[in-house]
């Protein structure tokens, strides 16, 4: 899947962003990037299913290492 940022600039001045194809915690760095790009402050952040799926994969990988 193509990795993309969708940045939405609303007429009321708010900015929304969604990452696509970015798995796990890596996506968090793009929230920081948005703050820098727009001199903005994050007000709300929601994680989608893909974020948690990756978390499970990472936990499983860690468990395999200990076995």
């Amino acid at each position: 899947m193509k990795k993309q940022l969708k940045i939405t600039l609303l007429p009321n001045g708010e900015i929304k962003m969604e990452t696509k194809g970015v798995k796990g915690k890596k996506c968090l760095k793009y929230a920081e990037l948005l703050e820098k790009l727009a001199d903005a402050k994050i007000e709300k952040q929601e994680f989608t299913s893909e974020y948690y799926e990756q978390e499970v994969e990472e936990i499983q990988q860690q468990q395999n290492l200990y076995e």
């Binding site: 001045g13 968090l28 903005a40 989608t48």
Partner: peptide, 17 residues
């Protein structure tokens, strides 16, 4: 998609009134 973010530019009052 893995994250959805809402940001307010410093040009605006954070708690938008």
């Amino acid at each position: 998609m893995s994250i959805s973010v809402v940001a307010t530019p410093f040009l605006l009052l954070p708690a938008f009134i």
